[in-house]
Simulated assay, not measured.
Amino acid sequence: MTGRRLLLVHAHPDDESLMTGGTIAHYLAQCAQVMVVTCTLGEEGEVIGDTWAQLVADGGADQLGGYRILELTRALAALGPDAHGDVLTPRFLGGAGRWRDSGMAGSPSARNPRAFVNAPLAEPVEALAEIIGEFRPQVVVGYDPAGSYGHPDHRRVHDICARAIDVAATTPEDRWRVDKHYYAVTEATALAKGLASVDELHPQWRMPADGELPSYPDAQVTTEIDISEVYDRKVAALRAHATQVTVAATDDDRRPTSYVLSNNIVQPIFDREHFILVRPEPVAGVREDDLFAGLDL
């Protein structure tokens, strides 16, 4: 395999669009090979609106996971074709349905034996290492130790990524060494500017309280990807996840700049996405504008 290969590991359908949708579209537009691995079907998500409300796990049909496969398929298609002109399609860790959405910490769903957090750690690590050995990415993107906002499945993604990278590098039959490992994060200044740009608020929506949305100090962010040229693709991908995301409507030709989840807390849609390089050690004082920066490909 030749060329740039980027692997992004996410916990649930919609995380790929919320956290890295612009980056996925950016590199697809540059003809890089991109793979998005999703670890659960998002069965425990809270559904927005009445149309699909009865699909939920708690007191409903428990069919939400299957519907979210469709939403993920539509979102990835919206982000653009891959290097060969084919539409990006979902890839689930261990196969679709192998592990179940754990829900929030302390909830009944977190005690489900099939919950992602209850899997012996070696199993998802091995499954991800196999994908790394197959796809051979130079760059892997996952989550920070807090799992962004603390969801147990996000934390588990953090737990498995570094371990899987190490396993893939030492597996004799299909050895592959990943060059760079990143956390997808939110930059504090970008968050503040994004919230300041929100000029219209739906009556049921509210602005976040100070510190309610997670972010990192600017100095800790190592990498910034300009996604302004693929911004519309990211918006389309967010809209594809209609059971989970509501994109702000606009009355004119302006691009929407915000969205809410089921909690109705406004969040900005960024025209730049941010990352922290964790392997290898970042160069102090240097902010990258490319996840493949410094690689001899």
Rank of each mutant, 00 (worst) to 15 (best):
I160W: 05
L93D: 05
V230L: 04
P152K: 02
G59P: 08
L201C: 13
H151M: 08
G42W: 09
E46A: 15
P282M: 00
D62K: 12
T246D: 06
P145S: 01
Y183I: 08
A122C: 11
P113Q: 03
P90G: 02
V198Q: 04
A32I: 04
T73E: 10
G85V: 01
L295Y: 06
I227W: 05
L70N: 10
P137L: 11
C161I: 12
S215R: 10
V47M: 08
G103Q: 05
D86Y: 10
V198D: 05
Y149W: 14
A129H: 08
R5S: 00
A169C: 03
V185P: 03
D271Y: 12
D179R: 15
G21I: 07
Y216C: 12
D253F: 04
S197N: 14
H10G: 00
E273L: 11
P145A: 00
R111E: 15
Q54R: 12
A32D: 07
A284R: 13
R68F: 00
P256C: 01
I276Y: 01
L277D: 00
E130I: 09
R100A: 09
V283M: 11
G142Y: 04
V247P: 00
H84S: 15
L291H: 09
A169Y: 13
D251E: 14
T40I: 01
T246Y: 00
V178S: 03
G106T: 13
E173Y: 13
G294F: 03
R206V: 02
R74C: 10
D218H: 07
L93T: 00
D271W: 12
H241L: 12
I69E: 02
R206I: 04
V56K: 15
R233I: 04
V178M: 06
S107Q: 11
V198Y: 01
G106Y: 14
T186Y: 12
G22L: 12
A248F: 03
V260M: 02
P113V: 01
Y27L: 02
L277K: 04
R177W: 02
T170E: 12
T250N: 06
H202D: 15
Q244A: 11
Q33P: 07
I225W: 00
A236Q: 12
A168S: 14
F275H: 03
T73D: 07
F92Y: 13
Q30N: 14
P214C: 07
I165F: 09
L191S: 07
L201S: 03
P120D: 08
E273S: 09
A184P: 00
E134Q: 11
L195T: 08
Q220F: 03
W176Q: 03
Y182H: 01
T171I: 05
V36P: 06
T257S: 07
V47I: 15
T222F: 06
R233F: 05
F275R: 04
P81E: 09
A237Q: 10
P145Q: 02
G85K: 01
P256N: 00
